[in-house]
């Protein structure tokens, strides 16, 4: 039982860790705000959810504590992280941060220009 539990815990935490490391690489290496935001909002969320799940399992299975708080936290992160990522990217765009040169298309530019003219 303990072994299974521990395996589960280690697995989830490990997943979380991998995503976390990926996030760091992304945030450090990606060329512009928008790509970094991508790394941050997606993989970071997955990373933390993984680790939290591991923690949840640890407390549930090893210490006998079924923590609703942790589940709630996971849920919360699940809802909010994308919203936050969206808002940040939009803010970056609207505050005039230029995307990288490799960007293929910029559909929003037209709309922004349009509304500025109004």
């Amino acid at each position: 039982m303990t072994v299974i539990a521990n395996t589960l815990i280690v697995f989830t935490i490990l997943t979380g860790l991998i995503f976390t490391v990926v996030t760091v690489i992304g945030v450090l290496r990606f060329p512009d705000v928008y790509t970094r935001a991508h790394a941050a909002s997606k993989s970071a969320t997955l990373g933390v959810i993984g680790i939290l799940l591991g923690t949840f399992f640890h407390f549930w299975l090893n210490e006998g504590l079924f923590s609703i708080k942790l589940l709630l936290g996971i849920l919360f992160l699940f809802i909010t992280a994308p919203i936050g990522g969206h808002l940040l990217s939009r803010a970056a765009y609207l505050s005039g941060v230029k995307p990288t040169k490799h960007t293929v298309g910029d559909d929003l530019a037209e709309v922004v220009k349009q509304s500025k003219r109004d």
Binding site: L72, F76, I79, I83, H86, L87, L94, V112
Partner: peptide
Amino acid sequence: MKTNDVILQTGTKVVFFIIFLFS
């Protein structure tokens, strides 16, 4: 420019209650 915050507002409606209950 005028922006709508539909995503934020919709999320907030849920999140507000979570936070409130948590508090």
